[in-house]
C-alpha cells in the first residue's frame, strides 16, 4: 500500500475553509473594531478596551476550571461561584495580615502581598475543591439533575459559612498603594490594576496552554475530554485525573476571586453567584469543555460589557445574553465545539 494513496487532504484546505476556522479568533479584533466605530473616540476606546480585556481575562481565569471539569466528566458545578467568593474573602484576610506591605509605597512589597494573597486563596479554594468533589459531587456522577441541585446546595451552604466567618456585610477590599490610580497611555487613562490583571490573566492562559499541550497530564486531560473511556482502557484512572482538574479549577476560581475582588474593591458572599452568570455565558459561547473557546468567549464578553456599559449602560448584561444567542444561532455548540467520541 502506498502512503500517497491515503494521504489526508490537508493541503487542499482552501482559503475560505481556513478563514472559517480562524473566524472565532478573529471575532475579538472584529468586536474591538466595531466598538471603536461605535465609540468614535480613541482614548475612551482604549480605556474601555483595556478594561474589557482585564475583565475578560479575569472571567477566563474563573471559568476555565468549570469548562474543563465539564468536558472531562460531564459535570457542571453550579457551586463554582462559591470558590470565587471564598477566594476573595481569603484574599481579603491575607491582605489584611500583610497590611504593612500593602500600605507601603514599594511596588515590590505591594506585588508580593497580592501574589501571596492570591496563593493563599488558591490554596484554600483548592483544598475546598477537594472536599467539594469528594463530598458533594462524587456521589452524583452521571446524574445531571442531582448534580445541579446538590452543587447549588453546596453554594448556599458555602455562602452561609462565609456569613458565619466574615459576617453578612459587604467588605471593602482596598488595592495596595501602588496599584491605585491610573497611568496615562497615549492620552488615555488606564487603571494600573487593570494592566496587572491583564498581565496575570495572560500569564495564566499561556501557562494553562502549555500544560494542556506539552505535558502528559495535559494530554491526558485533552484525551479524556474527547474519550474518557479510551483513557481508562489505556490504564489511566480518569476519576483521579478529574479530581486533580477539579482541584485546579477550584484554585483558579479562588485566584480569580481575589483578582475580581480587587477589581470591584467590594466583596460579598454573593459575588461568586453573580459572576457565575457571566461565567456560564462565557463557557456556553466558547463551547462547553473548550479552553480556547472559553478564552475567546471571555474576551468577547469582557469587551462587549465595557463597550455597552459606556454606550448604553442599562443593557450591559442583556447585551452579553444577546451575544450568546447570536453565537448559538450561528454555532449551536459554541465557538469551539468539543469533539466527543460518544
Amino acid at each position: 500500500m502506498s502512503d500517497t494513496a491515503i494521504r489526508p487532504r490537508i493541503e487542499q484546505a482552501g482559503l475560505a475553509d481556513r478563514l472559517t476556522a480562524a473566524l472565532p479568533i478573529l471575532l475579538v479584533p472584529m468586536l474591538a473594531l466595531l466598538g471603536f466605530a461605535a465609540i468614535g473616540d480613541a482614548t475612551t476606546w482604549l480605556t474601555l478596551t483595556v478594561a474589557g480585556l482585564a475583565m475578560g481575562l479575569m472571567i477566563f481565569v474563573m471559568a476555565s476550571g468549570l469548562t474543563v471539569v465539564f468536558g472531562l466528566m460531564d459535570v457542571i458545578n453550579f457551586g463554582h461561584g462559591a470558590f470565587v467568593s471564598v477566594g476573595a474573602f481569603v484574599g481579603f484576610t491575607a491582605l489584611a495580615w500583610m497590611g504593612g506591605w500593602t500600605a507601603s509605597p514599594s511596588v515590590v512589597l505591594n506585588l508580593a502581598a497580592v501574589f501571596l494573597a492570591i496563593c493563599a486563596a488558591a490554596l484554600v479554594t483548592g483544598a475546598m475543591g477537594y472536599a467539594f468533589e469528594r463530598v458533594i459531587v462524587m456521589p452524583v456522577y452521571g446524574h445531571h439533575l442531582k448534580q445541579i441541585l446538590v452543587t447549588m446546595g453546596g453554594l448556599i451552604v458555602t455562602q452561609q459559612l462565609i456569613h458565619v466567618i466574615w459576617g453578612p456585610d459587604a467588605i471593602h477590599l482596598a488595592r495596595p498603594e501602588t496599584l491605585r490610580g491610573s497611568v496615562i497611555v497615549a492620552g488615555a487613562a488606564i487603571e494600573k490594576y487593570r494592566i496587572m490583571a491583564v498581565g496575570i490573566g495572560l500569564a495564566l492562559f499561556l501557562a494553562m496552554r502549555y500544560v494542556l499541550r506539552s505535558t502528559r497530564i495535559g494530554l491526558l486531560v485533552r484525551a479524556g475530554v474527547e474519550n474518557g473511556e479510551m483513557v481508562e482502557a489505556l490504564g489511566y484512572r480518569i476519576k483521579r485525573l478529574f479530581l486533580m482538574v477539579f482541584i485546579a479549577g477550584s484554585a483558579l476560581a479562588g485566584l480569580g476571586g481575589v483578582m475580581w475582588g480587587l477589581y470591584q474593591e467590594t466583596i460579598t458572599a454573593h459575588m461568586g453567584s453573580e459572576i457565575l452568570v457571566l461565567v456560564f455565558i462565557v463557557v456556553i459561547i466558547g463551547g462547553l469543555g473548550s479552553v480556547e473557546g472559553c478564552f475567546i468567549g471571555a474576551l468577547l464578553v469582557g469587551l462587549l460589557s465595557n463597550y455597552t456599559a459606556f454606550l448604553a449602560p442599562k443593557i450591559a448584561l442583556v447585551s452579553t445574553i444577546g451575544l450568546m444567542v447570536v453565537i448559538l444561532m450561528w454555532r449551536p455548540q459554541g465557538l469551539f465545539p468539543v469533539v466527543k467520541a460518544k
Binding site: 502528559r216 474527547e226 473511556e229
Partner: peptide
Amino acid sequence: FVPEDMGIFTDLTVAENMTL
C-alpha cells in the same frame, strides 16, 4: 483494547496518541 470506533484522540497528534 482496540474498540470498534477506534477510540482515537483526534485532538491530539499521532505522536501524542502513541505517547499516552
